[in-house]
Design a protein around this nucleic acid. Structure first.
Lengths: 343, 343
DNA sequence: GTTAGCACTCTAAAGTCGTGAGTGCTATTC
DNA sequence: GAATAGCACTCACGACTTTAGAGTGCTAAC
């Protein structure tokens, strides 16, 4: 690795990164020498900067401009970030008060959270609702609550509940529903809810279902009960990104927005984040969002009372205020977890 | 009114509007004379254009550029649009096939619709889910479906149904729930669902509820049952608007996005549209979205099987291809209505 | 190893200028 | 009197040049 950096080199790199984060402009040797109280002349700094460039940590847009940190530099910077700015009291207050503004149901809370993240960070806030379908299936129950209306209650092994109201084409009797439940409970033990659904779809296509009308009816309802709801994603503060000078031209912006419209991409990216605990940071191409867009992503998991896992975070330019955003994301995730487990 | 226009003036105005819609550039007198097969010299056209400018139908960005239609001109143009381009077979096919892609539930369909609108029009598609709370309350019923779980079924006078699952802090008995239902059904007759909610909130605050614990319990659940779900809005194709040359600079774009983020504004605007039947068109400041943003809105209502009303449409620049978008919106609204009433 | 000095490079901003599209006015034609 | 041809005038836009200044790399001195 490239941790082969002298103390001084690291300090200078840090100074450059921070300067660039603050100003969005290439930073020159004399600027570093001045700002950075270390009594060094610009010439010395220049030498060091030349080294750093050789190591792939800096680039210059052209000969007579200052230098810009590369992704590698951000990575190094973030990894060595020791002094994380604490979440200020005011910010804590805001996060908590926003959390309290319990919207309507889970979606409401999460949307509000997304907005809070955006407001505090000044970048985009993003929240993904806890997904249920990756959990292991434990139990399902169908309740007839009216003509052609069935309530399905699905329980995962982690104890998470999901209720779904199903409207059917024809009527199902209570006993039939109980039988259906028993059938599934017996047969699907140990599979994840996703797998259960696949299994059902398979059976629906099988020969047996063609002839056994009763079975076909049962499968039809069951499939609806375990069907995945589209992952809910809440992105707020999209306008804020326009404040960033690097996105002020239409071409780049368009790229970003388009990337977001295919939410599939995001989901894929973010499901990665769900696996690990704590705050996760993806810089530039590490996000695999769009090679050129130059966005970074800071995320963390949160959990609900039923142990399902969701994801929240902030999307901003690579040149993002990591030191302040990281603790915000961290704290918010904790608060949301707490809030959701209380309920 | 300004319908005091000679045939020729109107033809020229129309030519200018269409040219400008096509090219986004100021159109000059000679361009009109050429394009517009009418055998007129540019000089004559110039005279007419000078008149139109005086009447507030055209402006010139500067002395030696062509002229641009004002909002007033668009209005006139749209109002006098006789020859609406028909929806092509291909477009019909797309609309229908998208409709068939029934997503998960109502939200799924509407989201898909929004996307379709965006794709066909090349502007932004927008759909607002049918709102329920403006309907007149007819009947409510609470069903106990488990410990601390109650299903509320709400029926409006138009026959629309809304089911809501309520999780409570403590347990409610079946008889208590029936009594609660009867109480509300008797007392709230004739009010809209919105009013019912207000009424309940009022009673909750009243002295009586302070002392009558049973009543307080009842009101608490009832309130949840009739609470409005945040209006669901689906906006798709936000990236597309970046294709429009007039929005290529960051400032204007930001305005637009910000306007959309306060969905409240949109809802307000769009609830106006719901009142009237057929396609509605709002041009520029008529949208009251943001004075300067220069966006237009073409909308139409759709209805569900239960007679609740939703809204769909297209948002684009004032310089929008009205003649092709209007029929698309119209046709889509019809199709969605049809689809939703079949189900 | 550090620093001062200096020549060199290259961009961004400011100025210059010609071009051409488009206008408004007037004299002329039908 | 409406339509047109002609013409002088205006003004943004693009191409080009110039200038200023920020920043670099190198070398020689400390």
């Amino acid at each position: 690795m490239d941790i082969e950096l002298s103390l001084r080199s690291r300090q200078i790199l840090e100074a450059i990164v921070e300067d660039y984060i603050a100003t969005a402009e290439p930073v020159g040797s004399s600027a570093v020498a001045r700002r950075h109280a270390l009594t060094l002349s610009s010439a010395t700094v220049r030498n060091v900067m030349a080294n750093l460039e050789e190591m792939g940590l800096l680039t210059s847009p052209h000969t007579s401009a200052g230098r810009i940190p590369t992704e590698k530099a951000y990575r190094l910077y973030v990894d060595s970030l020791v002094a994380l700015r604490q979440v200020s009291r005011e910010e804590k207050r805001q996060i908590i008060s926003h959390c309290r503004k319990v919207g309507v149901g889970l979606s409401g809370i999460l949307k509000e959270t997304s907005r809070t993240l955006s407001q505090l960070s000044n970048y985009m806030g993003i929240v993904i609702a806890p997904s249920f379908t990756a959990d292991v299936f434990r139990h399902i129950e169908f309740i007839r609550i009216g003509q052609r209306k069935i309530l399905a209650i699905l329980v995962s092994s982690k104890g998470a509940l999901q209720n779904r109201l199903i409207e059917t084409d024809d009527d199902y009797g209570s006993e039939e529903l109980i039988r259906m439940g028993n059938y599934l409970n017996e047969k699907m033990q140990g599979l994840t809810i996703n797998q259960v659904r696949e299994q059902i779809l398979e059976e629906m296509a099988s020969e047996k279902a063609q002839y056994d009308k009763l079975l076909a009816r049962a499968l039809k309802i069951s499939e609806q009960a375990v069907r995945a709801e589209g992952e809910e994603i809440f992105i707020e503060g999209q306008a804020r990104i326009l404040d960033q000078p690097e996105f002020s031209d239409a071409g780049r912006m368009k790229e970003i927005y388009q990337a977001f419209e295919q939410k599939g991409l995001l989901v894929q990216l973010l499901s990665r984040c769900m696996k690990a605990d704590g705050v996760q940071i993806y810089i530039g191409t590490e996000t695999s969002l769009s090679q050129s867009a130059g966005v970074s992503l800071i995320t963390s998991r949160f959990v609900t009372s039923s142990n399902t896992v969701g994801m929240l975070g902030v999307i901003g330019p690579t040149r993002m205020g990591y030191s302040s955003v990281i603790p915000i994301v961290d704290y918010t995730a904790r608060m949301v977890s707490k809030l959701l487990s209380e309920v």
